[in-house]
């Protein structure tokens, strides 16, 4: 198995994702799950950004002076949507956590899953 530079770049993101998944699977309260989900979200976004930048790092907007190494605009446009959706999910989950917090202020799964 050969390690190309692109793959080496992906290793920290992979570690980040493992941390997020581990946190999500071992969390004991709602807030920790929220943070873990955010970590996984960030890892996904970074993968998209890295892959968009694999051809070049120049902003893909045509201006007076042309460059040769533009980034791929397609994944970038898509990850913008995904960032917004992830933010909306977090906001909804926080709202639910707020409502549940009135019933059980510690927000522990043990209390809520009865």
């Amino acid at each position: 198995m050969d390690l190309a530079p692109e793959k080496i770049q992906l290793i920290p993101i992979f570690i980040l994702m493992v941390i997020g998944c581990f946190g999500l699977l071992t969390s004991k309260s709602i807030l920790r799950s929220l943070f873990a989900l955010d970590v996984i979200d960030t890892a996904t976004i970074s993968i998209f950004v890295l892959i968009a930048a694999s051809n070049g790092t120049q902003t893909p907007i045509i201006s007076e002076n042309l460059y040769s190494n533009y980034a791929d605009p397609y994944p970038q446009a898509i990850i913008l949507t995904a960032i917004v959706i992830g933010f909306a999910t977090q906001a909804l989950l926080c709202a639910i956590a707020l409502r549940l917090g009135r019933v059980s202020p510690m927000l522990r799964y043990r209390d809520l899953e009865k």
């Binding site: 999500l24 989900l37 996984i40 979200d41 992830g86 999910t89 989950l93 639910i96 956590a97 549940l100």
Partner: peptide
Amino acid sequence: FQYLIGGGLAML
């Protein structure tokens, strides 16, 4: 909450 967090993770 469970539905949303499970669905969000699945979509990621």
